[in-house]
Design a protein around this nucleic acid. Structure first.
Lengths: 226, 226
DNA sequence: GGAATTCCTTGACTGATATCAACGCGATCT
DNA sequence: AGATCGCGTTGATATCAGTCAAGGAATTCC
């Protein structure tokens, strides 16, 4: 049986949150939680998919192997986000690896459990599509940014999005390595470092892992003009 | 009633191709074909979605509006490709615009028709997921390329992928404007022009809209080393 | 405690890409 | 035919981002 906090987490997710109570409960009964230490691999690109995941605590990066073998961070997920649900009903391999960036807790539900429930209640399929569509949309936006904005602007956009999460205070702490963030933004660590520095002219101050948004308006203006 | 060629096209798509015959036929009965002249908009980002599309002839670009208002080409679809199926069961707007790059024919099926069939035969849901997963996977790969490879390499990769379609001859004609291709690859038209030129050292010759792959091995080698 | 490791930063440099401007070419229109 | 327009190319230049190298700070390992 799942502890209450984890149930809440699932209920907050797009994938599970909109399910009727009985369906949700049957799925939750078969869910279980794994603890991943920083650096642990939750699933590996190329391995056959058996589970759907939901981040409950910590942060998880999704990566793909680039052509030269170097890893590329495709996205970073925080609590309340599910992934791998697009592999439901398919005998297929994970297209990405998932690695814990901090000590994390991840809820696992085996595909077959969810599949059985969805087939039993076809009316719940829209929630599945919603979750997958959200991912699709996220990737679309990311492609737009990669194609149409500079590295510096992407860094600025990242900070503004961060700040959305934590709007009361102007300080945010990056809870993972900056090289990971650099890969996520599609730039090199050196360039990220210099970008933070350059943004001091646009209302941002970065000290170690701490980002301070001193003048949010200025930062938004910088992002807006381009 | 749909002409035979269009039925074949639908049968060749991921979304419709794997459906049981009776389900397919009921859907096909409600499908209809529109002719889009070059430059015509098939659907517009932000407008509410009512149809699912399947490219039957020509080429269609998917674009999003970038921050500064400039359009970014996200993907280019050829006959046999369906899109917008991820919006099934959702009252939502198209996240992209679709514009015909050449005179094209596009098959339209209204969402409600497909939704009714999927609910009647829940066993067909996997095909829906397959199509959406294919898109997801395609976007993932694109992000990988944008983050981990140079513009020149992306041009090379594009040519190799083109050539896959047309392997018997070494000539391929780009059937749309090069500025569109540049946006798709995330570079400026000027840079694309220079990239083509530079690839002459790697077994490619470009003359106007015609690409000739003179030494495929050399091109693959160039792409592989990096 | 000290050595080694990892991550981040910084500097100098190189290479890649964007920008600005000019021009050629073909298509279209009158 | 001549004018106009859009597209593609090319050149000169500026800006941006990657590379290489070095060093500092924090952490881990003996």
């Amino acid at each position: 049986m799942l502890a209450e906090g984890f149930v809440k987490c699932m209920q907050g997710s797009i994938l599970f949150g909109a399910l009727p109570e009985d369906v949700f409960n049957r799925i939750a009964q078969h869910a279980h939680v794994t603890t991943a230490r920083q650096g642990d691999t939750i699933c590996r690109e190329g391995e056959e998919a058996f589970s759907v995941f939901c981040v409950a605590e910590g942060a998880v990066k999704l990566t793909v192997a680039g052509r030269n073998g170097r890893e590329v961070v495709v996205d970073i997920f925080h609590p309340g986000t599910c992934f791998a649900e697009a592999l439901l009903f398919r005998k297929d391999a994970y297209p990405v690896s998932a690695v814990a960036l901090t000590d994390s807790k991840v809820i696992l539900v085996s595909k077959s459990v969810i599949e059985a429930e969805l087939l039993r209640e076809p009316g719940t399929i829209p929630t599945l599509l919603s979750a997958t569509y959200a991912h699709l949309h996220r990737l679309l936006r990311q492609i737009e940014h990669l194609k149409a904005t500079s590295g510096l602007q992407r860094v600025a956009g990242y900070i503004l999005a961060l700040d959305d999460l934590d709007r009361n205070t102007n300080f945010v702490q990056i809870p993972y390595e900056k090289q990971t963030l650099a890969s996520m933004l599609g730039i090199k660590p050196e360039t990220l470092s210099r970008s933070f520095r350059r943004l001091s002219e646009h209302g941002v101050r970065v000290d170690g892992p701490i980002i301070e948004v001193m003048d949010r308006k200025a930062l938004e203006a910088f992002l807006g003009e381009a």
